[in-house]
Design a protein around this nucleic acid. Sequence first.
DNA 1: CGGGGCGCTGCAAACGTGTGCATAATCATC
DNA 2: GATGATTATGCACACGTTTGCAGCGCCCCG
Lengths: 353, 353
Amino acid sequence: MIGPATLRDVARLAGVHPGTVSRALNPQTRGLVNERTARRVLDAAQELGYRPNPIARGLRTNRSNTIGVLVPDLMNPLFAAVVRGIEDGLREGGYTPLIANTDNDAERERVAYEAMSARQVDGFIAATARRDHWLLADQVRTGVKVVLVNRRVDSDALPAVTGDDHEGIRLAVEHLAGLGHRRIAHLAGSQTLYTGWSRHLGFLDAMKACGLEVDPDLVVFSDAFTEKEGARCCGELLDGGREFTAIVAGNDLLALGCYDALEAHGLRCPDDVSVVGYNDMPFVDRFRPPLTTVRVPHYELGATAAGLMLEQLRGADPPARQLLLAPELVIRGSTAPAVAQADRNTASLDTSH
Amino acid sequence: MIGPATLRDVARLAGVHPGTVSRALNPQTRGLVNERTARRVLDAAQELGYRPNPIARGLRTNRSNTIGVLVPDLMNPLFAAVVRGIEDGLREGGYTPLIANTDNDAERERVAYEAMSARQVDGFIAATARRDHWLLADQVRTGVKVVLVNRRVDSDALPAVTGDDHEGIRLAVEHLAGLGHRRIAHLAGSQTLYTGWSRHLGFLDAMKACGLEVDPDLVVFSDAFTEKEGARCCGELLDGGREFTAIVAGNDLLALGCYDALEAHGLRCPDDVSVVGYNDMPFVDRFRPPLTTVRVPHYELGATAAGLMLEQLRGADPPARQLLLAPELVIRGSTAPAVAQADRNTASLDTSH
DNA sequence: CGGGGCGCTGCAAACGTGTGCATAATCATC
DNA sequence: GATGATTATGCACACGTTTGCAGCGCCCCG
């Protein structure tokens, strides 16, 4: 009797056939076995501390109770929160996440996907951000279960749960418009990433809804969601000599880059230029100035995605659903009234005079 | 021919027995099979796109090429970096991490451990922080492979890789002493956690090495590594009316709490009190003021731990090794000379006069 | 020419579960 | 009370891989 107890051990102790034990222990098939013997089996299992072997079970059933989670980078607190939500959500259904970082690199995604498929994962939750995706093709071909989180594909063929970028950007633009800003710039994220793309679209619509004109010269596209790119693009706006009093950034990191560029140009935020970020990362309330931003419920994003996956695993084939979670504007110190800004300019002129 | 190709399929195509295919494909046993047939098998496998089934293999070999990773909270960027290092390190050896958050809760740790054991993980890397630990007992009993990261157990019986807290705190204290500070307070983390405990010890030694006296009233212990606790404990120091010009915090978050408490008491950092953190979390350079702190190479911590695990998996039983990784002091805006501080006080007195 | 050693491959038994099928036992029905 | 329906359990195989053992052919050497 070395190693953990097996089905046979339990069978021997209970005086029944291993097959019966299997049926008695599986809630699904317990109805097939006599209540009294089921009781005896359960007691025996309890006594031996029996734990079913998921490996053996997986071999037989072709399932692993495991979900592959593809995420660009766990070190990004945004994705860490999503993953945390996924983990907690999956636990409800007895599933375990298998996590892999892809760095948004196609090749690494591919190998992670292959490795996970080989490990017989029962489905994939993909937080990788590219808009076009081979997963889509592979999904329709092989019927593998997929849920997208924090992004969708253009065709809307896959179930997905994302923040409502359209609404979030609208909140940001309305806030700025309410403060009197009229010439608002947009520092967009990469258009190959879903979030960059959708927020850009949201910006165009929101401006129109507020009756403001979008100056194409005031929209600049970054290559990546990084501080460095944010600084570069914001510097581009400033060097161009274009007039604007506020920036809507596609991301908190881009907004942070704006801080740097503004400082490098001797401008102050929010006195000279207001800045709005997106995501409400941890600690953005600690920045100088504290960042006004749009909060996305990342944890709930993950938890909801997990729920969608569980639903898909249970039911035969539920309809592909596209869920939107509501964002929330968090007003802090990086935005100020445009009028006050003008006042301050004249005021400073007065004193300098 | 539905589903992925199996060993038998390859055998059929190559005209050999499945056992031979197994041997030919396993680099370990390839020497046993004729070179020509091995070639034929490899070609056949290539043609069918054969991928070995890790589940079946695991059932047979009782191994899963998987390492359980126990971490308090992935949303803490510190642990995210460690996990990232572990993942990259394990990949070298063909292993995959299976990650679980434990929230430093004993019960959750236990169930995660059980679940992972059932999944036949080949070892555990534990970043959970408590000093006493059942893993130790279970390890000696069952011989399961364990590596600790970012912490050790008191007995030093388990291989571990940690930052050199002793040295790190010494750098911090020396820096402050060099700036002329003599009355230095210590805001220690929970003493039930390894890092809180070791840094406290480091503080005592470093003070002695610098020829400074440790005033027991200037050492206060927090219950958790959070901003809130930092603010509470720092407030306690300030309310006590004790004199000090600098604080060494056990953690960046505790240091952040100090910012809050200082501001609440109308004191400025670093003008009135210098603050040093620990860890160099992302974005601490963005705080007001930018935080002077001790950088710990978290990614390398994880990568090294993975290496230790691989070593342990290959070799029979390597000696339990205790590795220390060197920290680095990052000087920013939260520390200032104690003399300059006095100057500023008198200066402000002069102007107010 | 026979025997022993060696290199290679086939054979089959595992690993622990799940499940269709058969079978024994129990029960209801006419 | 015989028959068919129902219930409960045993039986055996399958999942895909690894691996000890056996056997076959070959070569070398005596």
